Simulated assay, not measured.
Amino acid sequence: MKSIYFFILFSAGTFLMQGQQKISFKDSLDHKLDLSDWVISAKGFIPVPILITEPALGGGGGLMAAVFIKPNTPYLDSIDGKLVKTRVKPNIYGGAGGYTANGTWLVGGFTTGAIKKWRANYRVATGLANVNLNFYRDFPTIGECSFEFNMKTIPFSAYLIKQINRSSWYAGLDYLFLKTELKNTNIDFNTPKEVNSIISRLGLLVDYDKRDNIFTPNKGFLFNSLIGASEDFLGSDYNYVLINSAAFAYLPISNKITSGFRVEYQQIFGDAPFYMLPYVNMRGVPVMRYQGDIVALAETEWRWDFTGRYSLVAFGGLSTAVSKQSNFQDSSWKAAGGMGARYLIARKLKLRMGIDIARGPEEWAYYIVFGTSWTR
């Protein structure tokens, strides 16, 4: 689901729907290309083309989603005698199908949004996927080896989090179900139990969001933390506990320069299949390339808005993946970074789009970016 929300908003501006009033694609202030009015006024079915640029999936591919968007009016609260408006997530419903250069394919459906009378946010997603991925393991005598797996999987994920009082804090439950069948098995890597298995994980999710906007933040703070347990009594074949926490801070340095900082920490305890181990998720590093029982990373991004519409971005970070057989002192830190460009495609939403080029420890990669690259 990562970045789909931003692609939905952008792609809305490229398709006409019957029965709508004529809407300008130029901003009223500078008369430049701008999709704010179209996105805000969009109703009904929206076809969404999405480029898949993930190196681990072959570096190329595409996904088409069919999406419906229903905006929500803001919450109105009286605080200290003043009427305060609080942003409410739009309700989004859709389905998608995609194919990548290495033969991976997927189909799925999702819904996300808010239940206003509960003052709660939710997300539900499910699908069917046939994924081709390489996984890596170090051996004492021969060093690191790569193993290619074909994974047929049926995922289902959902969460429901409720606003605490009238604050920016939300808390609730998160659930993950994953039925996975492996092909191209290897006795040196996977266990017989991992060939055909079920994950059923229930967790507590806490979220705090004080960013000025959810698309391309200029200031504010986001914290998200999940503690989840996969257990026999939930129908799982594995017993383990996962801690997954992240914090993002956005600080304006001047009218034209915005700095961003990201830290993440993941740790897993107990018996988990290799494909559920935490991994480094950072631009320039292929998915699942570096896994461990503990993963930690720190990244910074700096954006220079040298005109009202155009920006340059520079980013870089360090990450490490620590296995059971090692510790932080013995593990190596991997560096990745790069540069990119942005265009303010929807001024009223503060939504920027663009492209990033990044280099990790082994290879170059490129990423189509809508909004922020840091999502939870």
Rank of each mutant, 00 (worst) to 15 (best):
K2C: 06
S3Q: 02
S3M: 02
F7M: 01
F10A: 04
S11T: 07
F15V: 07
M17Q: 11
M17R: 11
Q18R: 05
I23K: 04
K26Y: 07
D27C: 02
S28K: 12
S28E: 14
H31I: 00
K32A: 03
D34P: 13
D34E: 01
D34L: 01
S36G: 07
S41G: 09
I46G: 01
P49M: 01
I50T: 06
I50E: 03
L51Q: 06
E54V: 06
P55E: 04
M64Q: 10
A65E: 01
F68Q: 02
I69R: 07
K70G: 06
P74E: 02
L76P: 06
L76C: 11
D80Y: 12
K82T: 15
N91W: 09
G94Y: 10
A96L: 14
N102K: 08
G103D: 01
G103M: 00
V107P: 00
T112E: 14
A114S: 12
A114T: 15
K117A: 09
A120F: 13
N121E: 04
V124E: 00
T126Q: 10
F135P: 05
Y136S: 05
P140N: 09
I142G: 00
S146K: 13
F149L: 11
K152G: 13
P155Y: 07
S157H: 13
S157M: 12
I164V: 15
N165V: 14
R166G: 09
R166D: 10
S167M: 03
T180C: 05
T180N: 05
L182Y: 13
L182G: 04
K183M: 14
K183C: 07
T185V: 13
E194I: 11
V195Q: 05
S197V: 14
I199L: 03
Y208D: 00
K210R: 12
K210I: 14
N213C: 15
N218Y: 13
N224H: 12
S225H: 06
G228T: 12
G228S: 13
L234N: 09
N239W: 08
Y240E: 03
V241H: 03
I243Q: 02
N244T: 13
N255Y: 11
V263Q: 11
V263W: 09
Y265W: 11
Y265N: 04
Q267K: 14
F269R: 03
F269V: 15
G270W: 14
F274A: 02
V280W: 06
N281K: 10
P286Q: 03
V287F: 09
M288N: 14
M288T: 15
R289E: 02
Y290I: 11
G292L: 03
G292Q: 02
L297V: 11
W302T: 15
F306T: 05
F306Q: 00
G308F: 13
Y310Q: 07
A314Y: 10
G317Q: 01
S319H: 08
T320W: 08
A321V: 14
K324N: 15
Q325W: 12
Q325E: 14
N327C: 08
W333R: 07
K334Q: 14
G337H: 03
G338Q: 01
G340Y: 12
K348W: 12
R352S: 10
D356C: 05
A365H: 02
Y366A: 05
Y367C: 01
F370P: 03
T372A: 04
T372K: 05
